[in-house]
């Protein structure tokens, strides 16, 4: 291998580092500055004195409630995905029925359907079902759009379980149900954590469904809160950026403590 240091590539990567770092720097420092300080001395200056008012301010404009709403939606979406996908993936991998393989093809097709494409009839369906402006009305479509990637990821993980393990259990007279709980679920933990992180991210960062399917303050989710904050108090940039930082705290925590699962979950996002 070529051992000479590649100065050109190093310089290029530093330029990119600057581009990535600059807005992050502005974001972090701005949230610690007062509004007048930010307006007077510009976005690039360091704080005159450090203040946490922007964060408390964000909470007083309702971000605490948006946070809780988003958490509720996220938990429900993850729960639904965990309830629906493992049996599906198990059937895709192990079932001999034609239905399971056509179901798999249906989900593969679903990979390519963008949420934007179905938003109009979704609004119609959810309104007709009486779920407009209800968190459940956000949970259902969000979970549905997590299914294709989750099914793909989890059935991929389950395929790696060797057939001899199934055969051994069949020899002991185990039912498909027992194999599912005692063999398949424990051995596909990696895939399970990937789909948990993936669907949690989808729910936490989701914007289009909440935008179209909710309207009141009591059902507002955090992404929508950011959007409205910008429209209503667009000039309070430190306050706005404090809200942005708050919105990413949970994801940051996952990044610190479960980096591998997060990266895999994110790559699942890309499969969409």
């Amino acid at each position: 291998m070529n051992r000479r240091p590649n100065h050109l590539a190093g310089a290029g990567s530093l330029v990119w580092l600057l581009l990535v770092g600059l807005p992050l720097y502005v974001m972090i420092t701005a949230t610690l500055r007062t509004r007048s300080d930010y307006a007077r001395r510009g976005p690039l200056a360091l704080p005159e004195r450090i203040t946490l008012d922007n964060y408390t301010g964000a909470f007083s404009t309702g971000f605490g409630r948006y946070f809780l709403n988003t958490l509720t939606v996220t938990v429900c979406v993850v729960g639904l995905v965990l309830l629906l996908v493992p049996p599906l993936a198990y059937a895709i991998v192990r079932s001999r029925s034609r239905f399971a393989s056509s179901a798999f093809r249906l989900f593969l097709l679903g990979l390519a359907v963008p949420a934007q494409a179905v938003i109009v009839p979704m609004f119609y369906l959810i309104s007709e079902a009486g779920l407009y402006d209800n968190l459940l009305g956000v949970v259902l479509p969000t979970a549905a759009f997590c299914l294709p990637v989750s099914a793909l990821v989890l059935s991929g993980a389950m395929r790696d379980i060797g057939p001899e393990l199934y055969e051994a259990m069949a020899m002991d007279g185990a039912s498909p149900r027992r194999m599912f709980f005692q063999l398949v679920l424990p051995l596909s933990r990696g895939g399970l954590s990937t789909i948990v992180v993936f669907s949690a991210l989808q729910a936490w960062n989701g914007f289009l469904f909440p935008l179209v399917l909710t309207q009141s303050d009591s059902t507002k989710l955090i992404t929508l809160g950011l959007y409205d904050f910008r429209t209503e108090h667009g000039i309070d940039i430190p306050g706005l950026l404090a809200a942005v930082v708050l919105s990413m705290v949970p994801v940051l925590l996952v990044y610190l403590f479960a980096r591998r699962a997060l990266v895999q979950g994110l790559m699942g996002v890309g499969g969409k």
Partner: peptide, 13 residues
Amino acid sequence: VGRPGFVWAVPAT
């Protein structure tokens, strides 16, 4: 024997 039936795929589908 030991193969899951199509029912397993029904709820998600």
